[in-house]
């Protein structure tokens, strides 16, 4: 049973990573435009600029 001494902390740690990643996504406005993001991935060309620069205010940032 001593195995749960490892498994439970590991499970909690991994789950916690998930929550942190989720909150990071939320903070950096990645949920701003789900519809647009679905289309943008089909773009062949790279954007001229890193996406995080300026425009991520997007009006409601």
């Amino acid at each position: 049973m001593s195995i749960i001494g490892f498994l439970i902390p590991i499970a909690l740690f991994l789950g916690g990573l998930g929550v942190i990643a989720f909150i990071w996504c939320l903070r950096s406005n990645q949920y701003e435009d789900l519809e647009g993001a679905a289309w943008r991935i089909l773009e062949d060309e790279d954007e001229d600029e890193p996406p995080g620069e300026g425009p991520d205010r997007g009006g409601s940032g």
């Binding site: 289309w39 425009p55 009006g59």
Partner: peptide
């Protein structure tokens, strides 16, 4: 998606334009 790239690319071709981003969910363009 075609609308996004049409609008954004046209705007980026303008001299001086640093950023053009269309939010498709809210239809807002910055």
């Amino acid at each position: 998606g075609a609308c996004i790239s049409r609008i954004e690319r046209t705007l980026r071709r303008h001299p001086g334009v640093q950023a053009a981003r269309l939010n498709l969910s809210t239809r807002r363009l910055h």
